[in-house]
Design a protein around this nucleic acid. Structure first.
Length: 415
DNA sequence: TGATTTCCACAGTGGTACCT
DNA sequence: AGGTACCACTGTGGAAATCA
């Protein structure tokens, strides 16, 4: 167990005082609802995004298309098509199961089904990994899923049915383990009061996880993933980092394993394991330098150690066919398996976070400066190069499916 | 100042069984 | 419900060999 995991404890104590009780919680929730309502229109549009085809290696595949999530139940269900498709997906689920959960502000006729995905902020996901709170954190996420009515609490009995019951739609553990988890995450992820589990807000949880700000945009995590083995859950939590960074297939910026490690505290060795499990796509990148003369090769080799090799241009991508160039491998770029989500309440959560950290006086938001090395075109690269010629600058060149070639503007260290 | 794989060894934990 | 013990499995890092 890492020492950092233990640090969570004192925070829990502070939490109670830092926030003025249920009032603020309630208010927050109202704001959330309002914000969601506003965001919902745009959300509904960008929802259907492909996940990589799930292979059948014994793991449950998750749905290729992700139906609408996170919508307040009183929106959108007028659409017959949507409702129908949702129902079809979930035949067994009767309204009986949810009869208890429905009733906030607007008269909701019924809440249709559990969402198929959940909005997750990668910063939070990484925080869970870092603090070794994945087991309890997963329950927190599933509780959010179960809270269809978005009222902020779940009946404990219902939770037990859903999560442990034979027919439970979100079954993922036994009764016993559920108790353990509930005890484990008490006060941090939720608070229990007369038979109800009151969910803590994202902001408060982020605070407890020592996350100063949510920087990455949220992604859609399939609920099905949350019901799989803890290792798979871990892998996906990690993968949200990459999913969040891949906006369009254009902007696949390379990032080195070392940088990923700095940002996530996941070691390269583990990164690969997670990526395999969560089906993060990787693409190798190569820099193409000058023609492969002995001098050039030596100069580069001197600078980079063993990393250089000769690239033979069979296809004539760079110039005459068959010509050789000095080449070296660059950091990979990645495409995560999760659909990006609108930022939604992110700004507001960050405001709350700032407040919380101010009150707690624990603002040790050490920022990692990562200087940029990769650019979409030569103009931008040159511009940056003028400011800092200490390091190589790369800009996007040709590429085929398997890898991407980059043009290089070599650092002035290289004589 | 790249990436990948495989093999090995170890510690810690998730989840359960069996108690009271 | 909760305490405790137990075990298989998971997560992890190092090293070495190799690739492009």
């Amino acid at each position: 167990m890492l020492p950092s995991a233990r640090k969570v404890e004192p925070f829990v104590g502070k939490l109670g005082h830092a926030i003025s009780g249920e009032l603020q919680a309630a208010q927050e929730r109202l704001l959330q609802l309002r914000a969601q309502r506003q965001a919902s229109r745009s959300e509904a549009e960008g929802q259907l995004v492909s996940l990589f085809a799930a292979e059948t290696n014994g793991e449950r595949p998750f749905p290729i298309t992700t139906p609408i999530t996170q919508l307040p139940p009183h929106l959108g269900w007028e659409s017959a098509a949507v409702s129908r498709s949702l129902r079809r997906d979930n035949v067994q689920q009767s309204e009986v199961t949810y009869a208890t959960a429905v009733s906030i502000e607007t008269a909701v006729s019924h809440s249709p089904t559990l969402p198929k995905t959940i909005k997750l902020y990668p910063d939070v996901a990484i925080g869970l990994l870092r603090q070794e709170l994945v087991a309890a954190g997963r329950l927190w996420l599933l509780l959010q899923v179960a809270d269809v009515a978005n009222c902020g609490w779940i009946e404990e009995s219902r939770a037990r049915e859903l999560f442990t019951g034979k027919r439970g739609d979100l079954r993922f553990c036994g009764v016993r383990q559920l108790r353990n988890l509930l005890a484990q995450g008490d006060e941090l992820f939720w608070a229990r009061q007369n038979g109800r589990i009151w969910l803590r807000s994202t902001a408060k949880v982020a605070f407890a996880l020592e996350i100063p700000q949510l920087k990455l945009r949220p992604v859609a995590l399939p609920v099905a993933v949350l019901r799989q083995k803890i290792g798979t859950v871990r892998a996906h939590l990690y993968a949200t980092f990459h999913s969040s960074r891949t906006q369009h297939d254009q902007a696949k910026k390379p990032i080195s394993r070392e940088t990923v490690k700095k940002l996530t505290e996941v070691n390269p060795r583990t990164q690969r394991r997670y990526e395999r499990k969560a089906k993060v796509k990787r693409q190798a990148q190569f820099a193409i330098g000058p023609a492969a003369t002995t001098d050039n090769l030596q100069a580069r080799a001197w600078e980079q150690g063993q990393a250089t090799f000769q690239f033979k241009d069979f296809n004539g991508q760079q110039g005459p066919q068959g010509k050789s160039y000095v080449a070296w491998q660059l950091p990979n770029s990645y495409v995560g398996p999760h659909a990006p989500q609108p930022k939604g309440r992110q700004k507001r959560i960050n405001q709350t976070l700032t407040d919380l950290f101010m009150q707690g006086m624990t603002g040790n938001g050490q920022r990692l400066s990562v200087t940029r090395r990769f650019f979409d075109n030569g103009r931008l690269a040159a511009k940056s190069y003028l400011r800092n010629s200490e390091q190589d600058h790369y800009w996007r060149g040709r590429g085929n499916g398997r890898y991407q070639l980059w043009q290089v503007m070599e650092s002035s260290n290289l004589s």
